[in-house]
């Protein structure tokens, strides 16, 4: 099995006619994902390499029965696009847009929470989700993932997500689902949401969690793992050498005062029984050893 998406998930792409939307939307479709439509107010009635374009999400949902949406819209319009999807009844929204103002994210998150409790947002500013061989929504290259499980991956970073997939696939260890939650300050889906889903998924036997400096999500995840996870977890936290007060690329990756250091996160994870690696390669090796002993 997989979490959040599977081989039957029908996806529409908001922003399908833009450069990025077209590239990734078609790429996801070619991977085998059921990309059933796209939206573009000005290009309704046309198609993008056979994918029909609708004027808005509501019409796309009516015509296709889609339940998931892939938001590839520039920052100024991204949160409006997310809310449009939620209003049209979409229950799983992936937003890869980078550079959305934090206040827009905070408002959007709280509107979803208040008015659309059944809708899950993944991102913004995330690589998306891939369930190898079944469904790929986002920008992850499908050929670095290996179907069949038994590992679930959840990560705050994009390229480190690819690195994690690569380390496991190279060793012949497959993945059930790989979720990139993104590095922004207000992520729609957090580590705990994914850990909970992986714990409940019978096909996922172990979880790899990739964190980074900033915030306290890793510490909260550690507490959740200590009390609720029976499956083994391997973790790597990037940014041990990051200086305080400087944003390391992601808007959320910043050490303020003594808060958010990689060391504190690693300590919390270790204390929760997580196997903590010092670099992505070591994380891969630790996970391979765990999978072999299952």
């Amino acid at each position: 099995m997989s979490i959040f998406v599977d081989e039957n998930t029908k996806v529409i792409v908001q922003g399908l006619t833009g450069g990025q939307g077209r590239f990734h939307g078609v790429r996801n479709r070619d991977y085998g994902t059921k990309v059933v439509g796209g939206t573009s107010p000005k290009k309704a009635g046309t198609d993008v390499e056979g994918i029909p374009v609708f004027a808005n999400v509501a019409e796309a949902v009516d015509a296709t029965g889609a339940t998931a949406s892939f938001v590839v819209v520039p920052p100024a319009g991204a949160t409006a696009a997310i809310l449009e999807a939620a209003e049209a009844g979409i229950s799983f929204i992936v937003c890869i847009t980078e550079g959305i103002p934090a206040h827009d994210e905070a408002r959007c998150y709280n509107i979803l929470k208040r008015d659309f409790p059944g809708t899950r947002l993944l991102g913004p500013n995330c690589p998306g989700i891939i369930s190898p061989g079944k469904c790929n929504i986002g920008i992850t290259s499908g050929d670095i993932a290996l179907p069949g499980g038994p590992v679930g991956i959840v990560s705050r970073s994009g390229t480190l997500t690819y690195q994690a997939l690569h380390e496991l696939s190279q060793q012949g260890v497959g993945q059930t689902t790989c979720v990139g939650i993104g590095g922004d300050p207000v992520p729609g889906t957090n580590f705990i949401d994914c850990l909970e889903a992986f714990e409940a998924d019978p096909d996922t036997k172990a979880v790899m969690m990739i964190g980074e400096i900033g915030g306290s999500e890793e510490e909260r995840a550690a507490e959740y793992i200590a009390h609720h996870m029976t499956k083994p977890v391997v973790s790597y936290v990037a940014g041990v050498t990051a200086p305080p007060g400087r944003k390391m690329g992601h808007a959320g990756a910043i050490i303020s005062g003594s808060q958010g250091t990689a060391q504190a996160k690693m300590d919390a994870l270790s204390a929760a029984g997580v196997s903590v690696a010092l670099n992505p390669t070591e994380a891969g090796e630790k996970m391979v050893a765990i999978v072999k002993s299952l």
Partner: peptide, 26 residues
């Protein structure tokens, strides 16, 4: 490096190898 996470991770492995990074560059 490409990607913030990988760039941060690159700084980390340089330190683990006994060196020091001159910069972060994504």
């Amino acid at each position: 490096a490409n990607g913030a996470g990988l760039a941060m991770s690159t700084l980390d492995v340089v330190q683990q190898a006994g060196g020091t990074a001159a910069n972060f560059l994504d």
